[in-house]
Design a binder for these strands. Sequence first.
DNA 1: ATGCATGAGCG
DNA 2: GCTCATGCATA
Length: 369
Amino acid sequence: MQPQRFYPLSLNPIPSFTSASSSVTNVDSRRMQTFQSQSIFGFDNSIFNTGAAQALADIDVKNVNTMLRPDMFSNYLMGHGDGAYGLPSASGEGFEAAALLPVSSHEPPDGMVNLQQVMAMHHSYPAPFPQYPMPTPFPTSVVNPTPTLPRYPLAAPNSGLEVETDPRELERFAEHFKQRRIKLGVTQADVGKALAHLKMPGVGSLSQSTICRFESLTLSHNNMVALKPILHSWLEKAEEAMKGKDGTGELSGILPNTDKKRKRTSIAAPEKRLLEDFFRQQPRPSGERIAAIADKLDLKKNVVRVWFCNQRQKQKRDFRSQFRCRGGVAGGLPSTLSARPLLPPTSTTSLLPTKCSPFTGYFESTFRE
DNA sequence: ATGCATGAGCG
DNA sequence: GCTCATGCATA
């Protein structure tokens, strides 16, 4: 059984949401305007008011004209969990950065097992939730301490709760997430599968790759923003399930057996070096040039084209790189927990030197030949 | 963890 | 034909 496929989380089928004044309206506009305006989680509020949310969760979102929007998750995240940290405000102010994050790493389980197995172990983990530092206290008026209130937000706009877009906070969460996941003994793949069982509208399973990239911050900023509430939600449930030693089972996913094999082109080192040379010369070669390169390297034109696409994306998608200004990203940072990204001073409005592209953190070289 | 690939949405 | 999110396959 294949995991159900969903739309990319940040793609929004509603055209009006994809314009410059997109649905990410709730987000600190000062910052958001520095990023691509692609909407993230378009989610029609009305579905909540009509109580159709659950029904929606059960059908293929491809057929639904709604998507999730990060701001819709604000309340979602605040639900319960005494130890759970709250969604910080987008302002991100009064919040000391990664200094607080040296989470002491206790020994992880020797082997990774799926959550179901873990829960079956009946181990009660001591101090299940080393409090994730709460950056900005929420006004109590918007915090919902009552566990009986709806899991899905009825309205988010201008509620004061906003999507987390502070790169520091995202980074901190990513690390926190990884630490906790490991502590729980859950693999990245397990998390990805379990997401489908959260029954969050528009949220299906994700691959191990994506979870990995989230943890290692090798996603675009928008992508990080979009995934954070979902993963946070999973983590909350997982912690809870672990606490109450009787797992509800909702996190145990069906293990899909993917048998189809796709062959992957492998570009040899010499060719790759040449491609990198070409890329340095011109990151956005014309079709003709691509053809020429392909011919020269004896590669298929499409392979070369995709390689350039991926190379550009590689630069851009590294979440961390978006807050740096440098010539290239080749190699990138090691994705170890100890890799401390160079993040700019607190002010999110001046994250980047003016010469940088606000989105990519790079000097733009958009001109094509 | 990451390289190559796919596909939706878009201009 | 590009960007972007995401996944399969593999180093």
